[in-house]
Computed example of a mutant assay.
Amino acid sequence: MATLKEQVDEAVEEVSKTWTKTTWLTTTTAVPDPDDMGYSDAKVVQATYLYSDLIDSSGLVKAADTHEEVASVMSTFLKVAVRIIRAENGHIRSFDGDRVMGVFTGANRKTRSVRAAMKIEYAVSRLIDPEIQSVFKSLQDAGWHIRAMTGIATSEALLVRAGIRNNSDLLSVGLGPNLAAKLSDLRDTLAGHHIAIGKGTYNGLGESVIMSKGKDMWTGPYSLSMGGGSYNYYTSNYRWTSL
């Protein structure tokens, strides 16, 4: 069996390897499965990325009486977000603590991703929070309410299989995943607006997620600095009214 040093040296040497790139079908809503890709395979996709992040999880830990209460709240948020993303034909490709990443491909991917974000906002504020206040007296007494921030961005991305055998996943490389993550980090800086989307996503939206009763649901554009560049984005404080 190779030593740890030999294994690390082998991994480092792979930095110069050549990727076998193919273009994923732009008409399908599917996303490649890691198990169907080799470790030198790469897929070029046109995709919209959604990051939904629980706000003030540190405040949750401080307010809750037990770790079990914290786990229940986080687990419920992630379960609900996953179900909503999948219902809009999005694919779950990553969890990071209290944040979930969804990938949308195919027709209407921008509209579907934004509709998912608005449904997540509805579920968090109208379904999960009332239940939390009812079940956990500690959170009610502390005045802690569950909130989420969702960032969405669209770009061409390169999907590669990362990790080692029996412990691998897809790695997304491109502006879309980076910008979506950055937008989800804006959190409380948006004065009650809990959805932020890049300009490229906004420009491709369907009417159902742009206008509500004749009023534009979005404000902007605003400017965000990232990696030496500047990117425009829009925000909204609207939510879907049902699931």
Rank of each mutant, 00 (worst) to 15 (best):
D216R: 15
Y222S: 08
A191F: 03
S223W: 01
V135D: 04
R147M: 05
H193Y: 04
K199V: 06
A181P: 07
E131M: 10
L224V: 13
V160H: 01
A180L: 14
D169M: 03
D216L: 15
D185I: 05
I120Y: 00
K137I: 14
G151P: 00
A181Y: 06
G163I: 10
G220K: 04
L186A: 06
K182A: 15
S168T: 12
A191V: 03
R187Q: 12
W144R: 00
K182Q: 04
I164F: 11
S223H: 11
D169H: 07
W144P: 07
K137L: 09
I132H: 10
G206D: 09
G192D: 03
V135M: 11
E121W: 00
L158M: 15
G206A: 14
L175C: 11
D129I: 02
N167E: 12
G163Q: 02
K215A: 05
S225T: 09
D141R: 13
I210N: 02
D188A: 08
Y202A: 02
A180T: 08
S208N: 15
T189L: 10
Q133P: 03
R165M: 11
G176F: 03
G198F: 01
D188E: 12
M149V: 05
E131R: 14
V124C: 13
H194I: 00
H193T: 01
S223T: 13
E207N: 13
S172I: 10
F136P: 00
I164G: 07
A123H: 13
I146P: 05
